[in-house]
Design a protein around this nucleic acid. Structure first.
Lengths: 209, 209
DNA sequence: ACGTTCATGTTAACAGCATAAACATTTGGA
DNA sequence: TCCAAATGTTTATGCTGTTAACATGAACGT
C-alpha cells in the first residue's frame, strides 16, 4: 500500500483547503496554490516562498505542486502575473477618476506608491520576475501586455498636444519617479507619508501643460 | 589525526589566496572573502552568493568563514557597506567636477545610473541589506553615514537660496528619479542609453533656479 | 625556552531546500 | 467496462546555511 494509515486524514485536510470547482479528483490545486501564495506575499516585505511550506499549508504532499508548475520559478511567474494584473487594474481605475495635468499625475503617482507600500513583496516579485523572464525567452508574455497597460495609464495623465518623443521621455520620467520613490520606501530609506508623496510627485514638470 | 594526507596542499592553497598582512597564522581571510565577494558580484545582475562556493574559491573549508562572520547576512552586510562606499566615492567625485543647477544634476544623475548599470548586483545588495539592517536594530551604522553622504552629494547640485523644506523635497525627488530609472533598467524594463538618461533626468525642474 | 591560551581552520553532522524518478490512485472518455 | 491520462505520494539526490567538536599554529607570560 502506497498511502499509510493516516491517508484519510491527509485526504480530508486536502479537501478542506479548497472544495470549490472540484472538477478533478482532489481539488483545484493550481488555483489554491496561487491564492495561498498571493495571501502569503500580501503582508510581507521581502518575497520568500518555500514550496514545501506552501504545500504543507495546502495540506498536500511536498512535491504535488510539480504537477501544476514545472518548477518554482513558474509558480512565481504565475504569482507575479496575478500581482501585475491587480496593480494594473488599480492603476487604471485611478486614472479614470482623475483629470490630466500635474494634479492628475499626482493622484496617479500616489496610487502607485500606495499600492506598492501595501503590497511590498508583490511589487518586488513583479519586477524581479519580469526582469528574468522577458529577457531570457523573448516571448511576448502577458506580463509584457500588463506593463504596457501600466505605462499607458501613466501616459494618460498627459495632454495630447505634445510630440511623441517628448511624451515617451515624460512617461519614463514619471514612471521612474514613482517607482524609485516606492522602492526607497520599501527599502526603508524614506518613511511613507501620503502628503509628502504628493508634494514630491507634483514637483514633476514635464513641460506638458 | 584530524587533517588528512592532503593537509599540505590545503595549507598551500590557503597561502596562495592572500599572503599580505599575515598577522595571524594562515592568511587574512576576512579581507580575502570580502574581495572575492566583491569580484563575484561585480559582473552579476542578481546578488547570489554561496558560502560554500566562496570558501571553495578561497581554498578554504566550507565553514571557515564563520570565524570571521557570525552568519551569511553579516558577510553580505560587509559587502554592501564596501559597495556603498564605492558608490559614494564615485558620486562625490562626480559632484565635485560639476556645477549646480539642472545640468549639474543631470551629470550627477547620469553618474548614479551608470554606476548602477555597471554594478547591478551591488546596487541591489546595498538597498536589500540596508532595508533589513537599519530597521532591525536601530543602530547608527556606517551605512547610515554613507547614505547621508549620498544624499548630500545629490543636494549639492542645488542652489542654496531655497527653503530647507523645499530642499528636502527636491532632494528626495531627485533621488527617487535616478534610483527608479536605474532600477527599471536593471530589471530590464528600459534599455540603457546615456543620452536618454540625460534627457529624462534634465526634465526635472525643482523650482531651484 | 617552555607551556598555556586564544584565534583560526577542519571535519562531521543536521535540517531544510528544490527537484527528479518511480509508484499509486482517481477521473473521464472510448 | 476498461484503459489512459491527470493528479498525488513516496523516496532519493545533491544542494544550502549552520552548529558542535576537534585540531593547529601563533602569541604571550613566566
Amino acid at each position: 500500500m502506497n498511502v499509510k494509515d493516516n491517508s484519510v486524514n491527509i485526504k480530508e485536510s486536502s479537501r478542506d483547503a479548497s472544495k470549490e470547482s472540484g472538477t478533478y479528483h482532489h481539488g483545484d490545486l493550481r488555483a489554491a496554490a496561487i491564492a495561498a501564495g498571493m495571501e502569503k506575499f500580501g503582508g510581507q516585505n521581502h518575497p520568500d516562498l518555500g514550496l514545501r511550506a506552501l504545500a504543507r499549508e495546502l495540506g498536500v504532499s511536498a512535491t504535488a505542486l510539480y504537477r501544476h508548475f514545472p518548477n518554482k520559478d513558474a509558480l512565481l511567474d504565475a504569482l507575479a502575473l496575478e500581482a501585475l494584473n491587480q496593480l494594473g487594474a488599480h492603476q487604471a481605475q485611478a486614472a479614470q477618476s482623475v483629470g490630466g495635468g500635474r494634479e492628475g499625475f499626482g493622484e496617479m503617482g500616489v496610487t502607485y506608491v500606495r499600492w506598492a507600500v501595501e503590497h511590498p513583496a508583490l511589487v518586488r516579485l513583479i519586477y524581479d520576475r519580469v526582469g528574468k523572464v522577458d529577457l531570457a525567452a523573448g516571448n511576448p508574455t502577458k506580463m509584457g501586455e500588463a506593463f504596457y497597460q501600466l505605462r499607458a495609464g501613466i501616459a494618460a495623465t498627459m495632454s495630447e498636444d505634445i510630440s511623441p518623443e517628448h511624451r515617451a521621455t515624460a512617461t519614463l520620467h514619471a514612471w521612474s519617479l514613482v517607482h524609485g520613490l516606492a522602492m526607497l520606501i520599501l527599502d526603508g530609506q524614506v518613511e511613507y507619508d501620503p502628503d509628502m508623496i504628493r508634494k514630491v510627485v507634483t514637483l514633476a514638470d514635464f513641460g506638458l501643460e
